[in-house]
């Protein structure tokens, strides 16, 4: 792989890598470092990339491994306090609606982060990044049935929580 190929095929995945690392680590600053580290790792190992079919999934997998290494070395639980909220376009909303929206975004973030690790990772990859089941298998290194079960459980849990939130008028 030459530098041009790196720029056109690897670098464009950076935002997906960043969002996934943020989901795993709970810190955008750390996520940025991990993505940079991952990209450099991909570049340094470019000679062995010829056998890799899906470069993006490969990069995602490296990000996942590096993030989990970090979490392991600092011995903390992933994604306890995500450091950013509500960045949505809000031009058409009144201040009251804006606050309400921010509040509900925050709640959804919390309930998603409260999911078990695997469920949270699968849901992120499917619902935010739009990966196929096969790609999720490659990224997480798990088999198809595990992906499907995790996604099912994650969506059910989120649905239950949303129903509860609505029932209490939140």
């Amino acid at each position: 792989m030459d530098f041009h190929m790196f720029e056109t095929r690897v670098l464009p995945a950076k935002n997906k890598l960043f969002r996934f690392a943020t989901r795993l680590l709970g810190s955008q600053e750390e996520a940025k470092d991990v993505v940079q580290e991952a990209l450099i790792k991909v570049w340094n190992g470019r000679e062995q990339l010829n056998d890799v079919q899906n470069l993006e999934a490969w990069c995602m997998r490296i990000v996942k491994n590096l993030s989990l290494d970090r979490l392991r070395s600092s011995q903390r639980r992933p994604a306890d306090g995500l450091d950013s909220h509500a960045d949505i376009r809000q031009e058409l909303l009144t201040p009251h609606e804006t606050t309400e929206l921010q509040e509900s975004m925050k709640q959804i973030e919390q309930l998603m982060n409260a999911l078990p690790d695997k469920q949270r990772q699968v849901m992120h990859l499917r619902d935010i990044e739009g990966y196929s089941y096969q790609e999720i298998c490659e990224i997480l290194g798990i088999d198809m049935s595990q992906v499907k079960v995790s996604l099912f459980r994650a969506r059910q849990a989120v649905r239950d929580q949303l129903i509860k939130m609505n029932a209490y008028g939140l």
Partner: peptide, 19 residues
């Protein structure tokens, strides 16, 4: 469908996070 809408809005918001 409001509660589902807020979930999808959250997904959309997350997709906009960029370096």
């Amino acid at each position: 469908l409001q509660s589902a809408a807020s979930l999808f809005r959250y997904f959309q918001q997350e997709q906009q996070k960029k370096l």
